[in-house]
Design a protein around this nucleic acid. Sequence first.
DNA 1: TGTACATCAGTGAACGCGCGTTCACTGATGTAC
DNA 2: TGTACATCAGTGAACGCGCGTTCACTGATGTAC
Lengths: 222, 222
Amino acid sequence: MPARPPRRRLPAPDGPLAERLVAAADDILEQDGLAALSMREVARRAGVTHGAPLRHYRSFAALLSEVAAAGFRELAHAVDEGAAAVPSGSPSTARLAAAARAYVACAVKRPGRFGVMFRPELLDVEHPAFVRDATHAFEQLVRLVRAAQDAGWRPDTDTRRLAGSLWAGVHGLATLWIDASYAAVVRVSSLDDALEDQLRFLLGADAAPGRAPTTANHEREE
Amino acid sequence: MPARPPRRRLPAPDGPLAERLVAAADDILEQDGLAALSMREVARRAGVTHGAPLRHYRSFAALLSEVAAAGFRELAHAVDEGAAAVPSGSPSTARLAAAARAYVACAVKRPGRFGVMFRPELLDVEHPAFVRDATHAFEQLVRLVRAAQDAGWRPDTDTRRLAGSLWAGVHGLATLWIDASYAAVVRVSSLDDALEDQLRFLLGADAAPGRAPTTANHEREE
DNA sequence: TGTACATCAGTGAACGCGCGTTCACTGATGTAC
DNA sequence: TGTACATCAGTGAACGCGCGTTCACTGATGTAC
């Protein structure tokens, strides 16, 4: 009977476990979706036993809140980059349109994580990083809206509320696209098309000038 | 030792079990939320053993699809009633605004069920009643949009796409309100306020004339 | 009116599963002396 | 340079739970004769 081999430590993992766990959760969300996400699966993916994560996060909800916070950070960064890439001198709404495109692209690129960010029943909504990063993302949108107002767009509307309206308009398209409801009933060939429609609707033709509505099909009563 | 009492049939339930199961699922969603919803809990609530539902629905997903279909039917009905209550002679967008208010009211009244309607991973998205009722609800919106176009609102935009844009704009507010994200960052005192903002943003001042934007607070750069 | 039979909705035990969390432990590491 | 000690991240067994689905059954009901 062979002697039981001495228990060895695995080679050092590639980083502090706390961060690797968040990365593992992201992987699971991207590859297998929210339904496959659990504390135990995260531990498996990170190469530790299922008790280990609880040394770093008080609960599964706390880990998910960290995942959501990271999602808001990446979202804010993508939106910022999108808006910053618009040349100065563009119409007042052009930066908002670019921000909206970045928002939707980010959501659709990682729909699982995006979903977690808006599922408070899975999260600890008091989690400091979550509150901080979600708030920060919205404040950034407020700044973009304010700049557009300073450049003449809807100057008489309350800035935060205007930001909220724009957010809801863009967020609605993102979620309806992700859950496949939009494409199931609106006859549209791609998300890009739907998004440009939405931007023209929300911001006007200046913001999404690429396609003129020449193909409009106004279904008239017979 | 007392003789075991003869097993008796319970008194006849108040309706065919298939329908009672959907009603029980609705109850659970309303009272305890989606997290509490399971095949077994539905059976418990309906007063039958947990095997019974499978005589009527092939799977839990099939039952949920029936719940979602009923949700779309009720949504379509509420939207229709809301739009129909607008007196003729009102501005072209007034009916759309009323429809949007009904949509949001319906969503917020039963947030659990509304959530299920847009969670394809829980449903059998090929379920005939689900497909039929979801499609029908959207087609009804298309008719309202077409009527508004006939009355002069955005006449040069493709009707279905315009309906899709409006839907996304209203749906986004509903979901962000339900998951508490909206109120967490936008300073708004009630859903009604947020909704009127949204309608003014999406449809213009004619649609939501109640509140003039006199309290606008354009946060200017310092 | 009575009897034999088929139907089938609902029962309840069982299967096999994965979950979040707890907890006594081990063993590598860093620190104090 | 060597020793004693405390720390604590990670282990792995266990707890108790609920889940969706299967399946042989029972027993009330409707039908055929």
